[in-house]
Amino acid sequence: MEAAAIPAAVAHDDHHHGPPIANRSSKVEPEVLGILLFIISELMLFGAFFAAYFFIRVVAKTDWPPHGALPVEVAATNAVILLSSSLTMHWTDVSAKRGNTYAMRVGIVTTFLLGSTFLFIQINEYLSLGFNPTTNASASIFFGLTGLHGAHVVIGLLLLFMSAVRIFKGKVGPDHHKGLEVPGIYWHFVDAMWIIVFTTIYVL
């Protein structure tokens, strides 16, 4: 296998030589395109759970809601909280591009706190629902969809936390805000997804 290695003539130690700069063949930034494609993938993951919801509720005609009435007001409050976190996220992003450090810091902390509040309320709701995933298939899909969304909130919060750390270390500014913009796009997706989950689970 030794012979398999790159011949010495080619592989001479040139660590300080970098690769040539790649041609940019699209106006879209690679990072933005990457996260958008990832979001498409995530949408399909949700899509699969919505398919499960459809089959259980519509095809198999399992009773809905799983047990008593669902706390629509709580979930609606949560929707408002997440939507406002989207606004603060946008504000953070704009501030970063403008170089307003103070606004950026306030923005990211607010967004993070709003997201955490959502999660806190959601967990409390779980505990007071009066049913659990083993109750029946409707309960399974209820926990499946809201739990999947909750997991995405957790991932979003982790990403926001990273951005926050970088913001407070002064690594984010008008010239380098990819590390904030990309988690931001993801956060908007998580928020928008809640509207869909909320509508199908609590409203319909």
């Binding site: 499960a52 009773d63 029946n136 298939a137 409707s138 399974s140 926990f143």
Partner: peptide, 11 residues
């Protein structure tokens, strides 16, 4: 969970 458990309403 009961996704595939017909006794629990699964499909």
């Amino acid at each position: 969970f009961n996704f595939f458990n017909p006794a629990g309403g699964g499909d």
